[in-house]
């Protein structure tokens, strides 16, 4: 069970308090209608799925309820950093 640092609570808590929320920094396009089918598909479904550094979102669902971002190494599962939603990509 991972130990996850919530940047809002500023505490490391057990994974069961959190819900994983997919890859981070995939912003919803401001005007979806302007996108081609290919671009929209990319937004909807294409994920980097790296073997290595992964930017991802978590929600402290059984805590403060906030969504935040994290960088985690997907081979070791070790967190490099967690940071608040809206902060620049690390």
């Amino acid at each position: 069970m991972l130990l996850i640092h919530c940047p809002y609570c500023d505490e490391a808590r057990a994974e069961i308090e959190f819900a994983y929320a997919g890859e981070a920094h995939i912003a919803r396009p401001p005007d979806p209608a302007a996108l081609s089918d290919e671009d929209w598909t990319h937004y909807l479904f294409i994920r980097s799925n790296p073997r290595g550094r992964h930017h991802e979102r978590w929600r402290h669902i059984h805590g403060c309820g906030r969504f935040f971002n994290a960088v985690r190494e997907t081979v070791s599962d070790k967190f490099e950093v967690t940071y608040k939603a809206g902060e620049p990509r690390r």
Binding site: M1, L2, E15, I16, A19, Y20, E23, R47, N49, R51, H54, E56, R72, T74, V75, S76, D77
Partner: peptide
């Protein structure tokens, strides 16, 4: 498990 991983390792819960 809920997160993307290549660790071939899962959680006890």
């Amino acid at each position: 498990d809920q997160y993307v991983s290549y660790s071939q390792r899962g959680a006890l819960h």
